[in-house]
């Protein structure tokens, strides 16, 4: 089965608007899902500059799915869905 790929945007906008608190995902996800999921912090994904959508930051990408106003909870739910849980 293909791995799920998670990118936590650590661009300045996302970081200031809340992804500072999503950094725990980078440790938490491997602990929870082992090698089923790849997770990493990422330089700016460019999502905040589309139509100046900074107010929906922080952004996280789970494969191709963009999660707006991301929280740890929302990201874990999206991963579970991808894994068919």
């Amino acid at each position: 089965m293909a791995k799920v790929n998670v990118k936590v945007c650590l661009g300045t906008t996302c970081f200031v608007m809340g992804s500072a608190n999503l950094q725990e995902l980078i440790e938490l996800v491997p602990r929870k899902y082992g090698d089923q999921v790849d997770v990493a912090g990422s330089p700016c994904l460019g999502l905040c500059s589309i139509d100046w959508e900074f107010s929906k930051a922080p952004y996280v990408k789970v494969d191709d799915e963009v999660i707006k106003e991301a929280t740890v909870e929302k990201v874990l739910t999206a991963i579970d869905k991808k894994l068919g849980k």
């Binding site: 200031v16 330089p43 500059s49 900074f54």
Partner: peptide
């Protein structure tokens, strides 16, 4: 620091770049 962060966001400054 929150205000500084907001200032960077307003001006699209990418600190990492």
């Amino acid at each position: 620091f929150e205000e500084l962060g907001a200032w960077f966001v307003a001006l699209h400054v990418q600190v990492a770049e």
